[in-house]
Nucleic acid binder design. Structure first.
Length: 110
DNA sequence: TGGTTGACTAAGT
DNA sequence: CACTTAGCCAACC
């Protein structure tokens, strides 16, 4: 399981994000054992669209859609999240505290 | 082999 | 409150 590459692990965690929920690059990094590797997570997302990973559910710690420019269109990322019931204003998630999904807490068991 | 990069984060100015 | 600096680590050239 841990024999996979770093990218594969990131994709696996992102795929586990439920609809209508979001997480941060840092949270994924911590879950992967790299608390300071948030940038690696974001960087891995560059190829995430090729893997079919819902990268739109991954935002920065402030709930800001920093990676929206990497999606097709101008606000595809925002529309995808809004379609899942997440309210976004000015590229920022409003109910971040309610929608936030921390893999370290949700997946810590087992 | 080694320097650059990057969808981050925290702290400083 | 907005911008800058620094730390971080794996992949890329």
């Amino acid at each position: 399981m841990e024999s996979k590459n770093f990218f594969e692990r990131v994709y696996e965690v992102v795929r586990l994000i439920p609809e209508g929920r979001v997480t941060s690059y840092g949270a994924i990094a911590v879950y992967l054992g790299m608390a300071k590797g948030a940038r690696m997570v974001g960087w891995a997302m560059n190829a995430s669209h090729i893997k079919g990973v819902p990268a739109h559910r991954v935002v920065n710690k402030k709930g800001l859609l920093t990676g929206k420019h990497h999606f097709q269109g101008t606000n595809l990322m925002q529309q995808l999240l809004e379609n899942e019931g997440v309210e976004i204003i000015d590229n920022q998630i409003q109910q971040l505290s309610e929608c936030f999904w921390d893999p370290s807490k949700e997946l810590k068991k087992c």
